[in-house]
């Protein structure tokens, strides 16, 4: 009989996203974990960059929030999952927000679409008035 490996969370941590300095801490903490878990340098760079974009979104658009970072294991396979939550105004048109170049804050409009490209899995839950939760995962 085939054994299906369950997804296990082996490690977890929550970081606040309230200030620009928190963004720096988020980047450093994600980098430390990835380095400890021996992700390749290119993977580390992609994941930390995605974390920076999504944390900034939570700060600029969501008025701050938090990031929950979890280390996942499915059998021998490891991954990292980052969940960004804010209690901001939410996103009316998610498809539009994912398009490159779409911006409401005068930025480049690359944050969401770019992060999606940098990670293996991307999920966004948002509705007007209910805040936004973006969950991204990258497998080793």
């Amino acid at each position: 009989m085939e054994t299906v490996s369950e997804q296990i969370i082996t490690r977890s941590e929550i970081l606040p996203i309230r200030t620009q300095i928190d963004l720096v801490h988020v980047r450093q903490r994600v980098r430390t974990w990835l380095s400890e878990e021996r992700f390749t340098l290119i993977d580390q760079t992609k994941i930390v960059t995605a974390a920076s974009e999504l944390a900034r979104n939570a700060l600029e658009h969501g008025g701050g929030g938090q990031m929950e970072m979890s280390l996942l294991a499915v059998g021998a396979r490891k991954g990292i999952r980052l969940k960004f939550s804010d209690q901001g105004p939410g996103i009316v048109d998610i498809a539009m927000a994912l398009k490159d170049g779409y911006t409401t804050a005068g930025g480049m409009g690359l944050g969401l679409g770019g992060s999606k490209r940098l990670m293996s899995e991307f999920d966004i839950q948002s509705s007007p008035g209910a805040g936004t939760v973006v969950t991204v995962t990258r497998w080793k």
Binding site: L41, I42, T45, T49, G114
Partner: peptide, 10 residues
């Protein structure tokens, strides 16, 4: 690694 990431970011 930064160059690769930047281009992928768009």
């Amino acid at each position: 690694a930064v160059a690769i990431t930047l281009v992928e970011l768009g």
